[in-house]
Design a protein around this nucleic acid. Structure first.
Lengths: 201, 201
DNA sequence: TCTCACATGTAACTAGTTACATGATTGC
DNA sequence: GCAATCATGTAACTAGTTACATGTGAGA
């Protein structure tokens, strides 16, 4: 049917999240926006039906929690078969996934446009990446407070998240470096342009 | 209807490709696998219908080429309205796109598994990234031969591709660094394990 | 009063992948 | 003989996004 034994990649993503700690659908949805959404994202409209499928397959189970004032919620936890299947899937060799970066497409066609106006594109990307770095760093520090810095036990549920935050941080820093390189290209061209024309004023 | 004035991001990706030089659907399809597929990918089943839509909108035009032996082909080139629309789209501020890295999900759940067996996951990713780097470097060198190193004119159709290859290379190198960090985490744990147990033999 | 956070779901649509369909030429 | 490259398309399906739908409590 899908990725591995009838479970999709999204299914395994959700399993990985509830394996760390029991979560409601709403919690899973939040997890896949901040902080983890920088690495993998999903909307609640996809999450609720997927949780139902995982439950039908016996990979998660839920417990209804009645709350005073707030709406009731369903707290999902992973089952033993769910944990086994997840552990099995993790060790399978992965298929290469292709990124879909809109900025890369824009860059491909940037030679058609005015460099001075294109600059803001990369400045905005830098600002967005810096904002993400703030969030990722905060999440990472929260984990470092619970364990030692660079010393999270490999068997701790925090280990995977810590490693992924590390990955996300490196990616954003990388993006910033590249955007700065792009801006330097634009500046180089602007300088060459100024030099070839007699200074006015 | 879609992204900008009825044209989807895929449509703009194809427009960006044919803006560089006239291409057949097959050529576009190849472009979105190697070398550019490391940055944005699309299958021919998506490309042929999209080219037809772009043509219906007057953004590209094709010319049929009869070939001896080989099947006939349609060479698409961008039209003036196509070029204008693309240039306009490029300068629009972009929306953040979310990556979907399977390895990141596996990493989130890696604490459930045997570290010694998980190592191969990261070794394979390193090998794949090194392979990609070879391809990207070859493509980059082909451009550097036509222009100077780090001296591609901003108005050359090659500039955008060069910048994107640069981006792809940086991303793959980044991935390798992170995978090595992961392997170091596993080794650290293995060493601690050995140290805590009396040596046998 | 209005927006935001909490909380769960469905419906309609768009985007992307896999599989089907056809056919010649080149190299192993 | 078999696989790969060239060449273009369609059909069926899966995955993901946007919009619809409902309701409470807290704070500005």
């Amino acid at each position: 049917m899908a990725n591995f034994k009838g479970v999709t990649t999204l299914g395994f993503a959700i399993l990985s999240a509830v394996a760390r700690e029991p979560l409601s659908g709403y919690d899973v949805s939040r997890f896949f926006s901040r902080p983890f959404g920088f690495i993998w994202s999903a909307k609640h409209s996809q999450i609720y039906p997927e949780l139902a499928k995982l439950q039908a397959a016996g990979l998660v189970a839920h417990q209804e929690v009645t709350q005073g004032g707030r709406p009731d919620k369903k707290i999902y936890r992973i089952t033993d078969p769910g944990r086994s299947l997840l552990a099995e899937w993790v060790l399978r060799p992965g298929s290469p996934s292709s990124p879909r970066a809109e900025l890369a497409i824009k860059t491909l066609a940037v030679w058609l446009t005015d460099p001075a106006r294109a600059e803001s594109l990369y400045r905005q990307e830098i600002a967005a990446a810096e904002h993400d770095i703030g969030n990722l760093t905060a999440a990472r520090e929260a984990i470092e407070e619970r364990h030692g810095r660079n010393d999270i036990p490999l068997t701790s549920p925090d280990f995977g998240l810590y490693a992924d935050l590390q990955y996300g941080l490196a990616l954003r820093r990388q993006t910033i470096d590249w955007c700065r390189w792009m801006l330097a290209q634009f500046d180089r061209a602007a300088l060459a342009n100024t030099a070839s024309q007699p200074a006015a004023g």
